[in-house]
Structures are given as structure tokens and as C-alpha cells.
Simulated scan of single mutants.
Amino acid sequence: MWFDSWGDLLRVLAVGAAAYAVLVLVLRLSGKRTLAKLNAFDLVVTVALGSTLATILLSADVAWAEGVTAFVVLVLLQLLVSWSTSHVGPGRSVVTARPTTVVRDGVLDDAAMAKQRLTPAEVRQAVRSTGAGGLDQVARVVLETDGTLSVITASKLGDSTALEPEDR
């Protein structure tokens, strides 16, 4: 249908504006980490917040108060998980994957790439995006916990303290 009623449009405007304002307030109160996308769990929460906002906007079956409650629950769970990953040793490994080195000293690690479902072409693309023309210029390529590839050229390796201890 192209148009149902003015009442439906007014509901979307009123509830949408109110839900958006509450979402911004909740996100400001919860801190920067809520939308940081540092790992897969952070991404899931971000997507869930967007989905919740869309549901509040478009479904007359969901009351504004229910949507606000959903925002608060998601953000509180995100805060709980992020607190536990930084304060409880085993908590981090449950939610966050470990970084994986896929290139070491210019050599592709085929086993690591296969385990992480990466192709050599994807790794080479990440290397090219840093301006390096060859793998011989690369000290490490690390698949980070958020799914990005970090490229450390040999000239930027430094003392390698930013790498995992077993990668030095």
C-alpha cells in the first residue's frame, strides 16, 4: 500500500522522534564503548539497537515504552559484557576472539588464513591499501578481533610490543 492514514504517519513521526531522542540519551549515558565495534559482540549490539529502533518506528504493536526498555536492556547487557571482559579473566575469551597473525615476515601463513577463512587476495588487498607494494615489506598482518586486517610494515615494526607476546 502507498498510504494508510495520516494517523499512522503522525505516529511514526511522534514515536520516531521520541525513540531517537531516548536512544541518543541512552548511548551518551552508556559511553563510547557501546558503539565502538571492537569485537563481534559490539557489532551485534549495534545492529540490535538499529533493529529495535526500526521496530519501534514501524510496528504499531510495539509501544514506545517497550522500545525504550529494549534499548536500556541492550545497553546494560553491553555494559555488563564489556565490564566482565576487562575485569574477569575468562570473560574476555568467551566474547572476544584473539587476534590472528596471517603474515609473518612477508610469508603468508596458509594454515592461519584457512582457519580464519581468508584468501591470499584479501590479505594482499589489505597490504596494498597501506601503500606497500610487496609482502617483502610487511612484518606482520594481523586479523583483529573486529575482523579488520592490520598491516605492520617492516619499517614500522619498532620493538613489536603492540603484537601478541607469542608473535614477537
Rank of each mutant, 00 (worst) to 15 (best):
W2N: 07
D4G: 03
D8Y: 11
A19Y: 06
Y20H: 08
V22R: 05
V24N: 07
L25G: 10
V26H: 09
L29W: 13
S30T: 13
R33F: 03
A36K: 10
K37S: 14
L38A: 15
A40K: 03
V44M: 10
V45K: 01
G50E: 07
T52S: 10
T52N: 02
L53P: 02
A54C: 06
T55A: 14
V62N: 01
W64I: 14
V68Q: 04
L77K: 01
L77V: 15
S82C: 05
W83K: 07
S84W: 13
S86P: 02
V88T: 10
V88Q: 00
G89S: 09
P90G: 03
P90Q: 05
G91T: 08
R92C: 10
V94K: 09
V95F: 15
P99K: 14
V103S: 08
G106T: 12
G106A: 11
D109C: 07
D110K: 00
D110R: 09
A112M: 09
M113V: 08
A114P: 00
K115R: 15
K115E: 15
L118W: 11
L118E: 04
G131Q: 02
V138P: 02
R140D: 12
V142R: 02
L143H: 00
T145F: 04
T145D: 11
I152T: 10
T153W: 05
T153C: 07
S155D: 15
S160K: 08
T161A: 12
A162R: 00
E166N: 08
D167M: 09
R168F: 11
